[in-house]
């Protein structure tokens, strides 16, 4: 079992429809008492038992780190994904008991920063709800720029505005508004760190622009969970455990390995933390790499795969697992 995979038994205490696409879930410890402390930016992995399929999806905690009475997450419905978000939306009800992981933070604030500049796109707002609460608790200096499709889909923009006034700026696609990134990057005082969470294209835009403006990498933080993509089923040999498994269409390679009774390491299940890195012993076919962890060279080398998000198509694949 890997670090961060300690489990918590929780009960769903509230389910709130935030808007057309987003639902919020509140969890409390089933045995009462406080949940483990966490810091803004942390996520938990939620186990979804759906018949004989178990899905494990990471979601950022959005509640204030100052209160560990409950954890809250927000889930955006994805009608074409592998069904994790649909399960949350359609099947999870108040009173239900669930299992979640201990919180893990792969997107933490750098508290040495003199100022925190936050850029959120869509549902990428969730980690910032926790981070702003954490910073506001001691008068930390932050500014949040939040872009979304429309007023109606701007989850929590009203709450954030109410809490933090003009430290929060909202940009709506429906009004053709765009984050003035160039100006923001050019006018920050020394010691500012930038944080971005949102769609892949947005993260790339912010990272590339910051680098071109001379921002050091250490001051640029981003979080992008790649949701595992469905794909063609494929067969894998696990050399260490001596098993042969089949990865189903709606299953990730990591889930298939787990379903076979092997307990490989993982933390984020979104291709960012590096924990699940697995050596390839031999292969005949093509890799479908979806992670943000391996370098381009490693992706081309055919020597490594991140089973939480990546797949394979071809005749044979043997992993050192």
């Amino acid at each position: 079992m890997s670090a961060g995979t300690n489990k918590l038994n929780v009960t769903v205490t509230e389910v709130v429809a935030v808007n057309e696409l987003v639902k919020r879930f509140h969890f409390e410890r089933t045995d009462g008492g406080n949940l483990p402390t966490f810091s803004g930016g942390a996520h938990v992995v939620v186990e979804m038992r759906d018949g004989d399929i178990t899905r494990l999806n990471p979601y950022s905690l959005m509640s204030s780190p100052l209160s560990t009475r409950d954890y809250t997450i927000s889930v955006r419905r994805d009608d074409v994904g592998r069904g994790g978000s649909l399960f949350m939306h359609n099947r999870v009800k108040r009173g239900m008991e669930m299992v979640i992981s201990y919180p893990v933070n792969l997107f933490s604030l750098d508290l040495r920063a003199k100022k925190h500049l936050m850029i959120a796109g869509g549902i990428g707002i969730t980690p910032f709800l926790a981070q702003t609460a954490q910073l506001a608790s001691y008068g930390g200096n932050f500014e949040l720029h939040y872009t979304c499709r429309s007023e109606a889909l701007g989850s929590y923009s009203d709450v954030l505005r109410e809490r933090y006034g003009n430290r929060v700026s909202l940009y709506l696609d429906e009004r053709n508004e765009r984050i003035p990134l160039e100006r923001l990057l050019a006018t920050q005082p020394l010691g500012t760190h930038i944080y971005v969470c949102g769609p892949a294209g947005m993260i790339k835009w912010v990272r590339d622009s910051a680098a071109a403006h001379g921002w050091p990498d250490d001051a640029v933080h981003y979080e992008h969970f790649a949701a595992p993509q469905p794909g063609t089923p494929f067969d894998v040999k696990l050399a260490v455990s001596g098993l042969e498994i089949r990865v189903g269409e709606q299953q990730s390679l990591l889930e298939a390995i787990e379903a076979a009774g092997v307990d490989p390491p993982y933390l984020c299940r979104g291709g960012v933390c590096g924990q699940c890195e697995t050596n390839v012993i031999s292969y005949d076919g093509t890799f479908k790499h979806n992670d943000h962890w391996l370098s381009d060279e490693e992706h081309c080398s055919g020597k490594k795969i991140m089973p939480c998000v990546s797949r394979f198509e071809g005749r044979s694949l043997v992993l050192e697992r």
Partner: peptide, 10 residues
């Protein structure tokens, strides 16, 4: 100079 400088200074 630093008090008036912005991110992007090398």
């Amino acid at each position: 100079v630093l008090a008036n400088a912005h991110m992007g200074l090398r």
